[in-house]
Design a binder for these strands. Structure first.
Lengths: 154, 154
DNA sequence: GATAAAACCTATCAAAATAGTAGGGATAGA
DNA sequence: TCTATCCCTACTATTTTGATAGGTTTTATC
């Protein structure tokens, strides 16, 4: 899991929490999450193109969730940010990528692992995460230092 | 999953299948699996240092499994070859890496994901894989082209 | 003992992926 | 018109990956 997935997830959660007061701007997110606004732009652009976010341009503009948090899975978010969640490429499709998928038990192994790992990510919705987040008194606080780099910076 | 995990797994399965006739040399494996002998050396060295393989030096030497296949899990193999199976680093330990693990729900999310994914890998043993392999008529054949690169070469 | 087959070790290197930076549009509220 | 914001593209530095190369040590066999 690279910074794309980690920062991007923080961004979308941050957005979900703050979007009641209207679209959330990149500047706000970058400031709250202590991330580079320029870099964040790339990640949020992916989320928008992946149809998870809508945007409003101009002053007072920003981003907001395109769908209900309960209909957005963690798997969807991560796949958009990081690409397919799969151990190896040849397990991705039934196409003519692998020489003989059905004759290859290691291939089938990768396919099964891939399916199971995706299930783990897909059974969690953004709604679940938000619910979990709200059980904390200080939601902002629990965002401050999610990553090793942040701790080192500090 | 990089080539380390993929090639390394092929190597250890190949070894397990052929070790009845004595230690299996790198040359044999490299030839059967169509891999670079030099590169394979690195991977097998990791497996040996990880105490999954023993070696015999000199002519007729080679490698063999240090333990019973049923006691070696896929998770163990992959962790040795690829490093910890975890979405993000801060979910690895209870140590003072993250600022406040217990106050951070995203941190807990990573921990839970990490645990569940490791379970998927750990519930499969090398013994299981071998059993699966032997259900194929042509075990050698199903090894030939496991990876995208191999198919492209072909 | 000499030869050779093998494990073992270290350094180096090219290519790819990652993590960002920079700078300039386009849009729209004030 | 001004400016805050999204939007887009190009560039770059660093790190990781995937090797390659060349040597040393061990040991069975002749």
């Amino acid at each position: 899991m690279s910074t794309r997935g980690r920062y991007g997830l923080r961004a979308i959660i941050d957005m979900a929490i703050h979007q009641e007061q209207g679209p959330v701007s990149l500047r706000e997110i970058a400031s709250r999450q202590n991330l580079s606004e320029n870099y964040l732009e790339h990640l949020v652009a992916s989320l928008r193109r992946g149809n998870l976010l809508n945007s409003v341009r101009g002053p007072m503009g920003g981003y907001y969730l395109a769908r209900n948090p309960d209909s957005i899975t963690l798997g969807e978010i991560i796949r958009i940010l990081e690409g397919p969640i799969a151990p190896v490429e040849c397990s991705l499709s039934q196409e003519e990528k692998c020489a003989s998928p059905e004759d290859c038990f290691v291939h089938r192994l990768w396919q099964n692992l891939s399916r199971e790992v995706n299930e783990i990510f897909d059974k969690r919705t953004l709604g679940d995460l938000l619910e979990d987040a709200h059980s904390y008194k200080n939601i902002e606080g629990c965002f401050k230092f999610l990553d090793k780099e942040d701790v080192e910076k500090k």
